[in-house]
């Protein structure tokens, strides 16, 4: 039995897949704390789709895929910003408009110029068939993101919580916003290979959302979230070996299962404890009625 469970560890490609997924999963999860609190989930979703044309263009120009993907993601983000600040359109409309345009362009380019990465790989990811030079790119991106987050998380936290105060203590909020956006685009690119463009957003939202329900402290939220990201990504990759199925799907579903458990049973903000609390406190409300003088029937 143990032998069977350890089977994936005998294969180099499985070992690599688990390590790469785990690393990316943890970094995405760390960033997800900022994404969920800043309200940038939709933005992350858009970025992860907008990187697709970049992959194709990078192949045509013989550039590393990560460079093209990142450039394309940032271009999309800046386009959204530009349109939003110059029209009366709501943000969600602008995001929807821009990222679908980028995605359409990507689909078109890939079908016109078939590259070494198939559309299915970009959309659904394939961490099992990942090439060595791609691993290197992913690891560099994830490591730089991790370093920036660990060094500057307090500044980013203040920027997320209260940009006015960030200004008042002399921080450059424009720069911090751009930094957060850059990290978001970079991790979206890195996670692309592991789980694919569609599921990237789950890695950038679910762990943070889960941790948010478990704690009232940002530091703890980051620790819990990255723990969830690391664990689910390794276990997800491992499980996909037995199920002979998509790694991305396994990872994201595992994260969802954890989220649901927390949603129902989190000690303070869970559905069940809150309902129990409400019931208990409504029972203990003393009923006081105005005294109405009794009318005596004659």
């Amino acid at each position: 039995m143990t032998e069977l469970l350890l089977a994936p560890f005998q294969y180099d490609y499985m070992l690599r897949a688990m390590l790469v997924s785990g690393f990316i999963g943890a970094v995405c999860a760390l960033l997800s704390c900022f994404v969920t609190l800043k309200g940038w989930s939709l933005m992350g979703d858009a970025l992860s789709h907008a990187v697709v044309p970049g992959v194709s263009i990078a192949f045509l120009l013989h550039l590393p895929f990560a460079v093209g993907a990142f450039a394309s993601g940032m271009l999309a983000a800046l386009t959204m910003n530009f349109i939003k600040s110059r029209t009366r359109l709501r943000e969600d409309a602008v995001i929807g408009l821009v990222f679908t345009t980028f995605l359409a362009l990507g689909v078109l380019l890939i079908s016109l110029y078939p590259s070494n990465i198939s559309l299915t790989t970009i959309i659904l990811g394939n961490v099992l068939g990942i090439a060595d030079e791609d691993i290197l790119q992913i690891v560099i991106i994830a490591a730089v993101t991790l370093a920036v987050l660990l060094l500057k998380w307090k500044d980013l936290l203040l920027f997320t919580f209260d940009p006015h105060q960030a200004r008042a203590v002399g921080l450059n909020t424009d720069l911090l916003g751009l930094l957060l956006l850059t990290l978001l685009a970079a991790t979206a690119v890195a996670a692309l290979q592991a789980v694919g463009a569609i599921l990237v957003i789950a890695m950038l939202v679910t762990p943070g959302a889960t941790a948010y329900l478990l704690t009232d402290r940002f530091g703890r939220m980051m620790a819990i979230s990255s723990g969830i990201g690391l664990l689910t990504s390794i276990v997800g990759a491992w499980a996909s070996f037995f199920l002979n199925t998509s790694t991305g799907g396994c990872i994201v579903l595992l994260q969802t299962i954890l989220f649901l458990l927390v949603f129902f049973f989190a000690p303070k903000y869970g559905f069940v404890p809150i309902r129990r609390q409400t019931r208990r406190s409504t029972k203990s409300i003393p009923v006081t009625r105005a005294r109405v003088p009794e009318s005596h029937p004659h």
Partner: peptide
């Protein structure tokens, strides 16, 4: 320049404590 925001400009469900908030005044 110190700043006290309007109550509605603050996300009150943000995972920070009173102590965390006051220390934010010392960041500079």
């Amino acid at each position: 320049v110190a700043y006290v925001p309007q109550a509605e400009d603050v996300d009150w469900s943000f995972p920070v404590s009173v102590w965390d908030v006051v220390l934010m005044g010392r960041y500079g």
